[in-house]
Nucleic acid binder design. Sequence first.
DNA 1: TTGTATGCGTTATCAC
DNA 2: GTGATAACGCATACAA
Lengths: 340, 340
Amino acid sequence: MKNDKRTLLGDVAREAGVSTASVSRVLNRAPHVSERLRAKVKAAVDRLGYVPDGPARALASRRIGAIGALVPTLDNPIFSAMIDSLERRLKHHDCRLLIATYHYNLDDELEALRTLVQQGIDGAVLIGHDHRPAALTLLKQYALPYLSCWHSENDPDWPSIGFDNAAPAKRLAEHLIALGHRRIAVVTAPTTGNDRARARLRGFRDAMDAAGVELPGERIVTVDYGIEEGAYALQLLMRLDPSPTAILCGNDTLAFGVMLAAQKAGIRMPEELSVTGFDDLPQARFMHPPLTTVAAPAKDIGHRVADALAARIQQQPTIHCQVIEAPLVLRESTAPPPST
Amino acid sequence: MKNDKRTLLGDVAREAGVSTASVSRVLNRAPHVSERLRAKVKAAVDRLGYVPDGPARALASRRIGAIGALVPTLDNPIFSAMIDSLERRLKHHDCRLLIATYHYNLDDELEALRTLVQQGIDGAVLIGHDHRPAALTLLKQYALPYLSCWHSENDPDWPSIGFDNAAPAKRLAEHLIALGHRRIAVVTAPTTGNDRARARLRGFRDAMDAAGVELPGERIVTVDYGIEEGAYALQLLMRLDPSPTAILCGNDTLAFGVMLAAQKAGIRMPEELSVTGFDDLPQARFMHPPLTTVAAPAKDIGHRVADALAARIQQQPTIHCQVIEAPLVLRESTAPPPST
DNA sequence: TTGTATGCGTTATCAC
DNA sequence: GTGATAACGCATACAA
């Protein structure tokens, strides 16, 4: 069966009339190999249909040819877009992708990281800046190249490629304030273990503080990311008296839910209610009205992470903290509040 | 650093005063191990903080603890939803996920499969029923457990978990015909190497043939999956005279594009134009009007694939061809045609 | 430039 | 039940 008669490196060597070392050298593009030897080996490889054994090569060379990516979830298209471009780009570096999700539970993230490290990955990418301290210890202990992304903290311990989550959030809130809104509510994901959510919330708050616009606790609703959850949040907020004239959402998915519930409740947007998101999912512009949001550079991050991690694995120097622009996308879901 | 003083299996054995074989047995939950030995080893493992080496264990045991998934793209949320649930469920089987995309190019799929097989995966999942013959040869040659999904062909060579793509497509077309449409157009992805697209197209055609509704070539537009592409397709179709009163789209993403372009062109939906999708992405119900579509059981497929592949890896019997329901979701994007 | 010989860290096959 | 020890298949330091 599996074991019967696989052709091994030794078979190729015999067939080509050279040593196993030479075959290995040719296959690994080592320098100082004569063209003649290379040709002989390649011919033998083709003749026998030889395919190297991954685990064996991994054991001997101490690298497995794959990196690990730890993401909160693939169910949010913004992350799957990033993973898609990451995987695509990794191919150029002859590198595979091992993926694990932890659904915003940092203990699960650590556990998943342990598993991947044990698996023998050559490098790791994590999302965000919040992690268990043990995660860092583990990475350093194994001297594993790693990268964090999706944030802009300049932390000596964490090389990163991402964007500022607070600044665009602040600009969204400023935009609402400039439009005349004074009763602004926020729908956010739990901020524990989620620095991006925290940064966005801080951005919202900074803008409002600076403008002297109040943000009482009752106008902040915390729910998990999700359409249903966003819809639920809107219901809570609309019970307030007076109710908010605008809602800043932690991401697009929440905004979708908010808008869905608002429509069902017969609330006209943007006339009676302004709504903002964060991510700029492809569907954001299809909403009614089209959603004002922030474009998270997911594809770009994936691409750059692949290059940077590949560089780090080859001990090449990389920029420690790479910050990409995340532009505001102003659409029609934001407008002046109703004139009372 | 990495090489300095990792604790190895032998260290644990010495620390516990037992043989390496015993340590290995304890770690692998082998039968016939005394409780006393187990305790000694576990204590030693904890004391030394021993972590097994993945590649070494893979080489010796001939299994790597990970399967490979080959998907056309992760950029379509329907696939990332499936992968998310697949990865989640695989954890229960103590199995990791190696992922590769091929962007609807079957040669790239084969190439990616080769790479993953070489990597040493314990099993493979492929999407759909169209693959290069060499893919099957490869899987059989390596005696690798594998599964195809997202289709319902009962092919002895391809165990599968999926749904019928043709039947719901047919029902969508029948729905339009029952509403009174006679000038129905189709926007499809290229059907070469994409059996799902082909099956859906066949479903559309069958319904129309049966009802005596014509489907001339000019009413079939073939574009890649994508919002822009869908928008472009609508432009082409609206140049026809008479123009179609309904458009069947190969998936939701195309439908989104069609609807976007229709809105821009000032075409009222569903009064002047009915549109259908396929997949039921979370955003489908947010469209204006909410999109009539077919719910692809992505999460369910991911979950079942994990269980079935894990079973196959353990040589357990599984259902060869598992077909899941993909229900129609009738919303407001479909209505009777304008009365001329 | 090429060949030889050893090591990579486990698992698994034997005996005991 | 437990312990030696031979695979596992390749990469690489070293010698030539």
